[in-house]
């Protein structure tokens, strides 16, 4: 309550010094006074007293409302921190040229959809299914691109995801993409549940020196890592050992998986070979990420002049009604007095 009061402010606060004028109706009345010989002549009447108080309050309300309205009151905008159920999800999307192909490894034609289009469709449903999730979207190919920083504006996130089926280009530089994806996690409270969702259709060798940096970042932030591997039919799986030398260069997917497993953070890899498999994977991720998350809520500045004018209107209405209901002793008394009055006229005639 006091917090709400603190946030009240006015455009012209100096006008508020006029507020004591609102007490004027206590001193003077707008009603026409009817002089009477004795005020005690009328019987005491509770309803009349109530009406008197209401009219007086109406005057105070009208004056106070007008002064308040003129001063331009408003409630300052604020940022509220609340706790909801959700997670901070950093989505890292591969934009390499191969994402433009279908799961069959061809250029899409007719009703076929590319890997990028499929992931776009399914991720868009993922975003916004829970109100308090926060998302960041990063794309990477040769260099990482920050698309949307961590935000709870799901419209922006959906727009970012809608853009990922633009034709991709170049190669897959997963190390820098991971670094940027991780950098999206703000140093929020430690209880926040974080998830890094990597969507890619391939992998690349991570330089051992960069590996150390990434390892440190993962240890610090401890995100849940999900790898949505969009496998093209026929290409090697994560777990496939290559026939030749087992080096990162020969089987980058397998070694990236091994690297992730060595991070000592919760990690799951989903290998999807079609749109349905992607949908299943996303449903699983959604189910796993259910933790309390502090989120911020923006409350915009709110103009309160309308309320003040409304208040003044109520007061003025009361005053106008009282004025319209005004009666006059002398005028209304004439109906009874009329025969008496005509007498002197006749005498004078």
């Amino acid at each position: 309550m006091t917090d709400a009061l603190v946030r009240l402010s006015a455009d012209h606060p100096l006008l508020l010094w006029l507020l004591p004028l609102a007490l004027l109706p206590l001193l003077a009345s707008a009603q026409r006074a009817t002089p009477v010989a004795s005020i005690a002549a009328g019987p005491p009447d509770g309803l009349s007293r109530a009406v008197g108080v209401v009219v007086r309050l109406g005057g105070i309300l009208a004056l106070a409302g007008l002064i308040l309205a003129l001063s331009g009151p408003y409630r300052r905008g604020e940022t509220l921190t609340r706790t909801g159920i959700g997670a901070q999800v950093s989505i890292l999307i591969d934009r390499s040229g191969s994402m433009n192909e279908t799961f069959a490894g061809r250029q899409p034609s007719g009703a076929e959809e590319s890997k990028a289009a499929a992931s776009r469709r399914l991720l868009a449903a993922f975003v916004g299914s829970r109100t308090h999730d926060q998302f960041a979207v990063t794309a990477f190919s040769t260099a990482p691109m920050l698309v949307v920083p961590m935000t709870d504006r799901h419209d922006a996130v959906r727009a970012a995801i809608a853009a990922i089926d633009r034709p991709g280009l170049d190669y897959t530089n997963i190390a820098r993409g991971l670094a940027m994806g991780l950098s999206q996690f703000a140093a929020a409270s430690p209880s926040t549940s974080r998830a890094l969702l990597l969507v890619s259709d391939g992998a690349a060798v991570i330089d051992p020196r960069v590996q150390e940096t990434l390892r440190a970042a993962f240890t610090r932030l401890r995100p849940n890592l999900y790898w949505l591997f969009l496998r093209t039919k026929g290409s090697p799986s994560i777990s496939d050992r290559p026939q030749g030398e087992d080096t990162p260069q020969a089987a980058p997917e397998r070694h990236l998986d091994l690297f992730f497993k060595s991070l000592r953070t919760p990690y799951r890899a989903f290998e999807a070979e079609g749109a349905e498999a992607v949908a299943d994977a996303i449903t699983q991720i959604e189910r796993l990420e259910r933790d309390p998350i502090p989120y911020t809520e923006q409350r915009p500045r709110r103009d309160l002049a309308g309320f003040a004018y409304g208040m003044a209107l109520i007061g003025l209405l009361i005053l106008v009604l009282a004025k319209l209901g005004e009666a006059d002793l002398r005028r209304t008394g004439s109906s009874d007095a009329a025969p008496n009055r005509s007498l002197p006229v006749r005498l004078a005639a």
Binding site: S29, Q31, R32, A33, T34, P35, V36, A37, S38, I39, A40, A41, G42, S48, R49, V51, G52, V55, A322, G325, E326, A327, D328, L329, R330, T332, G333, S334, S335, D336, A337
Partner: peptide
């Protein structure tokens, strides 16, 4: 008559006492 029979049936009067006993609606 204005003090009794001539009073209006309906209306709002603000009485002002001539002897200074105040006002009353």
């Amino acid at each position: 008559t204005a003090e009794a029979e001539g009073l209006p049936e309906w209306g709002l009067l603000e009485l002002d006492d001539l002897e200074g006993a105040g006002r009353r609606v």
